[in-house]
Computed example of a mutant assay.
Amino acid sequence: MGRLDTARLVRAIGRYGVLLALVVLILFGWLRYENFLGSYNVLSVLRYNSMFALVALGMCFVIITGGIDLSVGSTAALGSVVAALLSPYGVLPGLLGGLAAGFAVGAINAFVIIRLNILPFIATLATMLAASGCALLLANNQSVSVSYESGFTELGQGDFLGFPIPAWIGLVAYLAGSLVLNLTAFGRTVLAVGGNEDATRLMGLPTTRVKAAVYILSGALAGLAGVILAAQFGAGQPIEGVGWELFAIASVVVGGTLLTGGVGSVGSTLAGVLLLGLIFNILNFENGLGWISLSAYWQSVIRGALLLVVVAIQARLVARSDDVHA
Rank of each mutant, 00 (worst) to 15 (best):
N117F: 10
A101M: 13
R15T: 14
S251N: 08
G106V: 10
M1T: 14
L259D: 01
G255N: 07
Y215S: 06
I114C: 01
I118H: 02
V254R: 02
L259W: 09
G226L: 11
I249N: 00
S268A: 15
V193C: 12
P164K: 05
A176L: 15
L54S: 00
L37Q: 06
P93Q: 06
A21P: 04
L125M: 13
Q237P: 03
R47D: 00
S145I: 10
R316G: 03
S39R: 14
Y33H: 12
D323V: 08
A213K: 09
G304N: 04
L306Y: 00
L4C: 02
K211Y: 04
G17C: 06
N117M: 14
A212L: 12
I13R: 07
L181M: 11
L179P: 02
A101E: 06
S74P: 05
G102M: 14
P206I: 10
T207S: 09
I122Y: 08
V273I: 11
C134K: 04
F28P: 07
G187Y: 03
I64H: 01
G241Q: 12
D69F: 01
G288L: 14
I313M: 11
V309A: 09
Q142Y: 05
A135N: 08
A139D: 06
F52V: 15
T184H: 05
L70W: 03
V324I: 13
I216W: 04
S265W: 04
G67E: 12
V91G: 05
F103S: 00
N117Y: 07
N41I: 07
Y89H: 12
A199N: 09
L22A: 04
V24R: 01
Y174N: 03
I118W: 05
Q142W: 02
V254L: 14
R209D: 07
T189R: 04
A77C: 08
A110G: 03
L171D: 04
R3Y: 10
D5A: 15
I114W: 05
V318R: 10
V62Y: 00
R11Q: 11
L179M: 10
T65S: 07
V105G: 00
G102L: 14
L43K: 08
L283S: 06
T260Q: 13
F61P: 00
A296Q: 13
P164L: 08
S50Q: 05
E154Q: 13
V324Y: 06
V10E: 03
A139N: 03
Y16Q: 03
G133K: 12
N140A: 06
L96T: 07
N49K: 04
N141Q: 10
L175W: 01
F186K: 05
T127V: 09
A100D: 09
L202N: 11
A185R: 13
S143I: 07
L289M: 11
G67L: 09
L136D: 07
A222V: 11
